[in-house]
């Protein structure tokens, strides 16, 4: 019990530190939020644009909501992903990585604190974007299963946390360009997961990758709940694969992170700043 309290206290170190960092970089946070809102609006306006360009009858309300769900869910997942991959990158930038990694705490404690902050931060960030984006459109959520949608999103976070931990290995192994390499992972997920289009429009060989992306199930699940009003029980077809992926991705991520840390300590890669 004492050990658990010790680890929980230590875990809070990362939450408090990240809150302080966000407060100190408040101007950047506003810029980032502004960028995210304009980006989401740009995507959502594709819906009325399609109608205007094709001159065909398009269910504009459906398409707007389809794209807004895509951009909001993607924003939520990618913010978690980037906070996690930054677990090493930000400390390399500040030069604190050795200090943090020589602290007497389990790596699980380290990642738990950082992840807890990432999830809460991402929720807040996404809620602000959604609130402002919603002001620009008449969104009809009368049929939506909001609780079901939130459930899919929360369960999906776990598997994305696993993916984020795996990606965080790159800055550990490649001090100079590791952080940039993580963009490749997120862009591949963006391509295959059906963020702005159904996965079915992709070539068959790319659809194979979609099956292994947790984002695919999060997006399909939230769309089923919010667009089609699917009952929560019907959402299990999306939630179960997400639970499975999370159950694999998180422990595998932790294990790989441990191996990478050991490798970095063996080869002296902790020392070098990118």
């Amino acid at each position: 019990m004492t050990a658990l309290i010790y680890e929980l206290k230590a875990s809070y170190a990362f939450v408090e530190r990240n809150i302080n960092i966000v407060k100190r970089y408040w101007a950047w946070e506003i810029v980032w939020l502004f960028y995210s809102i304009t980006n989401s609006l740009s995507v959502a306006y594709i819906a009325p644009g399609v109608g205007a360009l094709s001159r065909a009858v398009v269910d504009s309300h459906y398409l707007v909501l389809y794209l807004i769900i895509g951009t909001i869910v993607w924003r939520y997942l990618s913010v978690i992903f980037y906070w996690l991959t930054d677990i090493i990158g930000m400390e390399r930038w500040e030069g604190t990585i050795e200090y943090t990694l020589m602290a007497p705490i389990a790596r699980l404690t380290h990642l738990t604190g950082h992840t807890a902050f990432a999830v809460v931060y991402s929720m807040f960030h996404t809620a602000v974007i959604l609130s402002i984006t919603a002001l620009f459109f008449e969104l009809d959520l009368s049929r939506a299963n909001l609780i079901g949608g939130a459930l899919v999103l929360l369960v999906g976070s776990i598997s994305f946390i696993g993916v984020g931990i795996v990606a965080a290995i790159l800055p550990l192994l490649f001090p100079e360009k590791g952080s940039q390499m993580t963009h490749v992972i997120i862009s591949l997920l963006l391509l295959v997961s059906g963020v702005y289009y159904p996965v079915s429009v992709l070539p068959a060989w790319l659809q194979v990758f979609a099956r292994y992306s947790p984002a695919t199930y999060v997006l399909e699940g939230t769309r089923a709940a919010l667009l089609d009003g699917a009952a929560t029980l019907a959402l299990w077809q999306y939630i179960l694969p997400l639970i499975g992926m999370g159950a694999i991705a998180v422990p595998v991520g932790l294990w790989l992170f441990g191996l990478a840390e050991r490798y970095a300590k063996r080869t002296g890669k902790l020392k070098r700043n990118g």
Binding site: K9, Y12, N20, E98, T100
Partner: peptide, 30 residues
């Protein structure tokens, strides 16, 4: 153990109090 390195490794935007709170919590202090 603890270590003081040649380059003072801190979160530069954070204050001494914030940096030290982080360090203290890592070592289990309330």
């Amino acid at each position: 153990i603890n270590r003081v390195s040649v380059e003072a490794a801190f979160f530069k935007k954070l204050s001494p109090l914030e940096n030290l709170m982080y360090g203290a919590r890592l070592y289990g202090l309330g």
